[in-house]
């Protein structure tokens, strides 16, 4: 009715924190504060809601990866007489891949700082460095795959290799989609500037990129390092 005096544009469902809404009063003194869903300080800003939702998505993505890791760990000895990790993996390549991805994550962090102080040039430079290093990583990984398949150690060779290509390929696919996303983010920053909406997307991208780095840490440890120690 008319006594529910909240402007519809700002908070149509009255989820907000309104300790003393005009013309709205219950018998007891503290309305607003203790209503369901209000929390301590009212609703969080959109920035926090978006980032938190994306964090939940990232965690579910990590859970999906854990299933691939479990598959790999179960099948690592099922080489069917074919090559083992010891025969196939070259640690120099993995070290370069790791360095590229780590530096890429660092550059992404610097780009985020630049975007927070609304520095156009350094944001773009940071994002470009992030993307180029990601490309280096992806190129090295694809080259490794190509060499392995040419040697007859493709995903069809053994259960071990199926699990290997599924796990490492899934991570590579994530890096690839991250690079596509990064390209669109650079274009959006260039065209639309530092609109709050763009900043939220940038933050989600940086969370995604850092999470990929975490998965790579698990990956190079479990697959490459443990796989090559006898």
């Amino acid at each position: 009715m008319s006594d529910v005096a909240v402007s519809p544009g700002t908070d149509p469902y009255r989820l907000g924190h309104h300790p003393h809404p005009p013309g709205h009063s219950h018998g007891h003194g503290h309305d607003g504060d203790e209503a369901t869903g209000h929390g301590e300080g009212g609703p969080a800003s959109k920035r926090i809601v978006v980032a938190y939702g994306f964090w939940i998505f990232l965690l579910s993505d990590i859970i999906m990866f854990s299933a691939f890791f479990a598959t790999y760990a179960v099948l690592v000895d099922a080489t069917a007489g074919g090559p083992t990790g010891q025969d196939l993996f070259g640690l120099t390549r993995v070290a370069i891949e790791t360095a590229a991805l780590l530096t890429s994550s660092f550059a992404c962090g610097l780009a985020m700082i630049a975007s927070q102080v609304r520095n156009h040039l350094w944001t773009q430079i940071g994002l470009l460095a992030t993307g180029l290093l990601g490309l280096v990583f992806l190129a090295l990984e694809l080259q490794e795959f190509a060499i392995m398949i040419a040697e007859g150690a493709g995903p069809a060779r053994s259960a071990f290799l199926s699990a290997f290509f599924a796990l490492v390929g899934l991570h590579g696919l994530h890096v690839f989609s991250g690079l596509l996303w990064l390209g669109t983010m650079m274009a959006q920053v260039a065209v639309k500037g530092f609109h709050p909406r763009i900043l939220r997307r940038l933050m989600c991208f940086s969370l995604f990129w850092h999470a990929l780095d975490i998965i790579w840490v698990a990956l190079f440890t479990v697959v490459y390092l443990i796989g090559t120690t006898s």
Partner: peptide, 9 residues
């Protein structure tokens, strides 16, 4: 608004 929350990142 956000005196009691911090976004991941």
């Amino acid at each position: 608004l956000d005196q009691h929350d911090l976004a991941p990142g």
